[in-house]
Design a protein around this nucleic acid. Structure first.
Length: 423
RNA sequence: GGAGAGAUGGCAGAGUGGUCGAUUGUGCCGCACUCGAAAUGCGGUGUACGGGUAACUGUACCGGGGGUUCGAAUCCCUCUCUCUCCGCCA
């Protein structure tokens, strides 16, 4: 969520920038400011009362010792009277605070000034393209047909065991998955990221801290018996490592990478988007996460984008980078670059990675801070990106590298796979 | 799953109703001693919110929530978590 400092000090600018996300924040911002004033003034009165109360209580002890019973009784009566009034003040303050937090949670992050105007996905700006779109041979097939032809992925078997969206990978299909995970983790490590293995379930506190709860509760699998949530991305457990933490500036940027299975209910999805590997309930992903200083976070974002680009190049896939427009960005992001690879057989672009700077929006809920040069605590900036999500990469690999003789494995992956061809 | 113990500052660990935001040790920072270091000595060292240009200052926080009391880290209730033992088990 946005900080009160951001809102109170630059009210008009905040409203202007929210408009880029097509969010009319005028009323909400005014209400935030009013609630904050109410909270502050209430606290002022309450604190003064409590101070007097504390002093009275102390004096009662002293009076009792000196045997001044009457005076002690008078003080006692005065305290009892004040406590009644404080109850109301406390209720008022708590109410203002709760309303304030709830309201702040409904206000999206401010888009960076570098975010282009726009409402829809079509308004995203193509930043850069690379790789070559292959000309496929006669009779080239989409990945779901290739998966069947070479017996790599069994979608129906997954339906039997769990349901739609839980495919079973077999033989070279399974080995390709494992190869990609290892390849991505090794590359990340070489790029300076510390590998971590997080839990695949998180508690509610973690879900709130990274913003999945309460809004996106329906998107997560919830194990109600133990009140745990299956993670929709490793971002959740990894970022929560830094919840309620004050970091040393010299340790920034923190660079973590993690492989995890990801679980998403994807309620409401349908059509060609969910065909084959395009949208699954369970998939594998290697995530990169950074915690950084405000001064350096955009440098970090650039490095992350460059890193993801290098990965896709090594996989010899045609790609493009989109700078998301205000209307297509996520609620929490300040600036997002999407990576898409071209699926030659489906003749469409598939999103394979999303790299974002959340600035202090996520850190504010996480309470992830660092000590700045003035020894004061300051909110960190958080960033994350997929590097990469497997299913659509697998789809693109199968489709783009297919030949009449079989599917060619890109050089960088051969040693990881242990085979050069799927045939 | 059963039984018991516990949760206090970065860490360790005192504190069982007032003078406790909290003894002490350790770590860290500063200063002194030293050519430098170690050792030693002295001083400092939590977070959040409010007031103040600032120095400083008010309030809250001893796992979470509630209660008793003029007053709670301390007593009571409750929840969560951790540890030990037993059982089961990859």
């Amino acid at each position: 969520m946005l900080t009160l400092k951001q809102i109170t000090e630059n009210k008009d600018e905040v409203i202007r920038r929210l408009a880029k996300k097509h969010f009319d924040g005028r009323e909400a911002i005014e209400t935030v400011i009013a609630l904050n004033e109410k909270r502050k003034s209430t606290q002022g009165v309450l604190d003064a009362n409590l101070a007097e109360l504390n002093n009275l209580s102390k004096s009662i002890g002293a009076l009792m010792k000196e045997g001044k019973k009457d005076e002690a009784e008078t003080a006692r009566a005065r305290v009892a009277e004040m406590k009644e009034g404080n109850k109301q003040l406390e209720t008022d303050m708590k109410e203002a605070e709760d309303k304030l937090t709830a309201l702040l949670c409904t206000i999206p992050n401010l888009p960076s000034e570098q975010v282009p105007e726009g409402k829809h996905a079509e308004d995203n700006r193509v930043e850069k393209t690379g790789g070559e779109i292959p000309t496929l041979h006669e009779g080239a097939q989409p990945h779901w047909d290739l998966a069947k032809k070479y017996d790599l992925i069994d979608f129906e078997l997954g339906v039997k065991i769990a349901g739609a969206g839980f495919p079973v990978y077999k033989g070279k299909g399974a080995r390709l998955q494992r190869a990609l995970i290892n390849f991505f983790l090794d590359e990340a490590r070489n790029a300076g990221y510390l590998e971590v293995q997080p839990p695949y379930v998180v508690n509610a506190a973690s879900g709130y801290a990274t913003g999945q709860l309460p809004d996106k509760e329906g998107q997560m699998y919830h194990a109600t018996a133990d009140d745990l949530y299956l993670i929709p991305t490793a971002e959740v457990p990894v970022t929560n490592i830094y919840r309620d933490v004050i970091l040393d500036k010299k340790d920034l940027p923190v660079k973590n990478t993690a492989y995890s299975a990801c679980f998403r209910r994807e309620a409401g999805s349908y059509g060609k988007d969910v065909r084959g590997l395009n949208r699954l309930h369970q998939f594998d992903k290697v995530e990169i996460v950074r915690i950084d200083t405000p001064e350096h976070s955009y440098q970090s974002l650039t490095e992350m984008v460059d890193y993801v680009q290098s990965l896709i190049n090594k996989l010899e896939l045609p790609w493009r980078i989109l700078r998301l427009c205000g209307g297509d960005m996520s609620f929490t992001s300040a600036l997002t670059f999407d990576f898409e690879v071209y699926s030659a057989a489906q003749e469409r672009w598939l999103e394979v990675s999303s790299v974002s700077n959340f600035e202090s929006y996520q850190a504010n809920r996480l309470k992830c801070r660092f000590r700045n040069d003035d020894k004061k605590t300051e909110l960190c900036h958080t960033l994350n990106g997929s590097a990469l999500a497997l299913p659509r990469i697998v789809a693109a690999l199968l489709e783009n590298h297919q030949t009449p003789e079989g599917i060619r494995i890109p050089k960088a992956l051969v040693s990881y796979c242990g085979f050069e061809w799927i045939d």
